[in-house]
Amino acid sequence: MAEPTKKLKKPDVKIVLLGDMNVGKTSLLHRYTERKFKDTVSTVGGAFFLKQWGPYNISIWDTAGREQFHGLGSMYCRSAAAVILTYDTTSWQSYVELEERFLSLTDTANADCIFAIVGNKADLTDSHAQASNPEGEEGTEPARLSFSSSSLQRKQVNKEDAMALYRRVLHYKGLDEKACLPAESMCFETSAKTGYNVDVLFETIFDLVVPSILKKRNEGESSTVDLEAPSTAKRTKAGCCA
């Protein structure tokens, strides 16, 4: 990690993972970057990752879903090119929270920010999500499958709900639905546990943010965030309490 090339990396674009606690944001990212599922611990604040995508450096903010860290939410979202709103398919509450708590945090994101609605833990509700094993773990998979397919949980949030949310998000942002990406292609159901749809999700979004990198470069903007601009108050220690 400490190779000298690292310091040269400057993030070209920012993607933020938002969603209630325990929906699996960190697990999704871990599944994508480490190609495996592990029981992660509750995220503290926000964790910053850099992902090389072709010639571009994509920064990903994996945020804590806990209310405790709500204060920094808009900071993590500032100038984001894409926001991944994540819910748990087995929890209607986690879906409701997206609109109630997290949508307003995206006010600081780019005007042309891309939204994706992601229902994680699909393996708990869909047998085909359980079967997915892109890493070729055939050896262990069938046994587990036969065991768990009988214990499918009731799906609380359907893809139609996600698409409806997507449209409400666009409406909230004052965007014209026809000018934006269609709901069908921006709503995903994933499983960080089995890897189902995880690569598709991240790679779709990476591909979609590339144009905004090019656009930014053409406009000659600095690729880093302007630090001096928003910080007017010097005494910002209480910022989070406010």
Binding site: T26, H30, T40, V41, S42, T43, V44, G45, G46, A47, F48, F49, D62, A64, F69, G71, L72, M75, Y76, C240
Partner: peptide, 17 residues
């Protein structure tokens, strides 16, 4: 204690209040 007690700090760069 905070950093030692949670492995959440072992991945990525953390920014937290």
């Amino acid at each position: 204690n905070l950093i030692g007690a949670s492995s959440a700090f072992q991945a990525g760069e953390i920014w937290t209040p």
